[in-house]
Each structure stands twice: as structure tokens, then as C-alpha cells.
């Protein structure tokens, strides 16, 4: 990392890795558009966006856990669990959908606080603490709702307005309203990460917790806060998931956290802590979503997405490793 102020200021401001993955994203989009006429359609873009919201929120959450030098394995199962609990209250208990949404996010934040407390107060390694939470949340959702799948109100129903928060139709034209929330989240979290005490201390904890503690920073508080943020975004992911998909099934969601974590790493967040960028994470998510949606258009089955994403992940990390070696 001994780059001095050489090269274009833009490159230095954005960072080499982010530029590279941004280029990858653009190249992918161009390639799919050239190869397939049906890919370069408005509805495809809407599809890509729709399927990216919940991953984006999860990935923003994953980014905060990673910046502290930790990880959150409970993102995927947690998301389904929180969404099931909220949906259950709406469908089975007849509560207003707004209350269901609030409870979903609230439960998510509580589990985030739980993770943070295990890690910051009881010194349980993040991998183990969140692995436990992953198992707990995988079971707890179905226990609460009694083992069945949960479907949030349909778009056409009276309470269906919440689905239009993420996708709506005006005069027959699809509007990707969810992207607004994504954009807002990215801007706000970038600000918090780079410009506020909360963000700075979260970075500092991930970089050198002991030095941060000796500087008089209440590290426990900020460490827990980082996981609470992760929880909060898992809650938002649950809402996006519930609005996009038909149903939330008990025991599912496991594995999705790896997509989220992978996106964050592709976006330049370090698993060693202290480094991370929300905008990078967003690009990482789009690369994944574009592959998932785009590959079938060019005649490759979707499983290729897994393979190619894995290669891109290695490539992105490779750039970083090389840069640090020099």
C-alpha cells in the first residue's frame, strides 16, 4: 500500500480495485447486451434490480461485520426468520402491514445486538457466534409461525401497498422503486462510515482494536453497534425479499449470506478488517445479479453464475493481495 499520490486523482479517490470491478460490471453488461437482444430490454433491467435488493441490503450488513474484522453467517437464515415473523403477524394475527414491517426490522436489530454482545462482550469469535445465531434463526422462524410457509399480502390485496415500495406499475410501466431505497442506503451508510464517529471507530476497531481501546474509545459499544447495523440491514433485506418473492419457507435462507459476503469482498472489503466501501459492495452485488440474470440469456445455465462469480471473487481478492505485496 505504498502508493504515493501518483496517477490520476480520480483513480486514487475511487481505488484501483473498485475501478477494475466497475469495469468488469460494464463489460459484462455490454457483453450480454451484444450477445442477446432480449437481454438489453427494460424488463430485464427491472428483473436484475428486483432480484438484487435483498442481496444488496444483506451485503451492506455483511460489509459492516467484515470491516470490524468479523463476519456474520446468520444473514441468510436470519433474513428469512425475521421476514416470517413479521409476515405471520400480518397474515395470521391480522396486524397492519406497517406493524409487521416494523417488527421484522426490530427483531433483526435485536439479533444483531445479540451477535454484537456475544462477540464484543463475551469475546466469542464472530464465526462461532454468528454460526450459532444462524442455526437459532433457522429454527426460530418456523417455531414461531408453526412450521408453515409465510406469504406477505399480495400486490392486489388491500395491504399489498408494501410491495410497491420495491416495484410498482404506473400506466403499465414498471418502476423499480426499491432502487431508491438502495441508493439512499448506500449514500447514508457511506456518509456514516466515512464521516461520523460511529463509522470511524468501526473501521478503527477492525484495524487495531487494542490501539483504539487505548485511545479511550468505548470499543465494546461501537463493536456491538456495528453488528446492530448489520442486523438492521438484514431486516431491510427481509422486507425486500418478502416483497419480491412469493413465500418465505421455514429452514431456508442458508447460503444466501455467502452471496452477500462474496459481494462485499468483490467490492473491496477486506476480511481482515479495517477496509470496506459501501459503493464497492453495491457494484459487487450487481456483478452477481447480472450474472445470475444474464447467463441464461446467452444460453448458459444459471449454475455457470456460481462458477464465474467464484472466479471473479478470486480475481478481485487477487488484485488486492498483489497490491499489498508490492
Amino acid at each position: 500500500m505504498n502508493k504515493k499520490k501518483s496517477g490520476s486523482p480520480l483513480v486514487n479517490a475511487i481505488g484501483t480495485q473498485k475501478l477494475v470491478i466497475l469495469a468488469v460490471l460494464i463489460v459484462l453488461f455490454a457483453a450480454f447486451s451484444i450477445l442477446s437482444a432480449s437481454f438489453r430490454s427494460y424488463s430485464t433491467i427491472i428483473t436484475i434490480l428486483s432480484y438484487s435488493y435483498y442481496i444488496t441490503f444483506m451485503a451492506i450488513g455483511a460489509t459492516f461485520a467484515l470491516i470490524t474484522g468479523g463476519v456474520d453467517l446468520s444473514l441468510g437464515t436470519g433474513m428469512i426468520c425475521y421476514g416470517m415473523i413479521g409476515g405471520y403477524l400480518v397474515i395470521e394475527q391480522g396486524m397492519p402491514v406497517g406493524v409487521g414491517m416494523l417488527v421484522t426490522v426490530l427483531v433483526a436489530v435485536l439479533f444483531g445486538l445479540f451477535n454484537g454482545t456475544l462477540i464484543a462482550v463475551f469475546d466469542i469469535p464472530p464465526f462461532i457466534a454468528t454460526l450459532a445465531t444462524m442455526m437459532i434463526t433457522r429454527g426460530i422462524g418456523s417455531v414461531v409461525v408453526g412450521g408453515m410457509s409465510v406469504t406477505w399480502p399480495q400486490a392486489a390485496s388491500a395491504q399489498g401497498w408494501f410491495r410497491s415500495l420495491f416495484r410498482t406499475q404506473i400506466n403499465g410501466v414498471m418502476i423499480p422503486t426499491g432502487f431508491l431505497w438502495v441508493l439512499l442506503s448506500v449514500i447514508i451508510m457511506t456518509f456514516i462510515l466515512n464521516k461520523t464517529k460511529l463509522g470511524r471507530y468501526i473501521i478503527a476497531i477492525g484495524s487495531n482494536k487494542e490501539a483504539t481501546r487505548l485511545s479511550g474509545v468505548k470499543v465494546v459499544k461501537y463493536h456491538i453497534a456495528a453488528y446492530a447495523i448489520t442486523g438492521f440491514f438484514t431486516g431491510l433485506a427481509a422486507l425486500a425479499y418478502a416483497a419480491t418473492f412469493q413465500e418465505l419457507s421455514p429452514g431456508t435462507g442458508g447460503g444466501l449470506e455467502l452471496d452477500a459476503i462474496g459481494s462485499a469482498i468483490i467490492g473491496g472489503t477486506s476480511t481482515a478488517g479495517g477496509v470496506g466501501s459501501i459503493a464497492g459492495t453495491l457494484i459487487g452485488v450487481f456483478i452477481m445479479s447480472m450474472l445470475k440474470t444474464g447467463l441464461p440469456f446467452v444460453g448458459l445455465q444459471a449454475n455457470w453464475q456460481q462458477i464465474i462469480t467464484g472466479i471473479i471473487l478470486l480475481g478481485a481478492v487477487g488484485i488486492d493481495v498483489m497490491k499489498n505485496k508490492r
Binding site: R200, I203, A204, G206, S207, N208, E210, A211, T212, L214, S215, G274, V275
Partner: peptide, 8 residues
């Protein structure tokens, strides 16, 4: 031992 936060 230096007590510095390297990423800042």
C-alpha cells in the same frame, strides 16, 4: 509497540 490504527 506502536499503537496505531493502520487503516486511518
Amino acid at each position: 509497540e506502536l499503537n496505531m490504527v493502520n487503516h486511518l
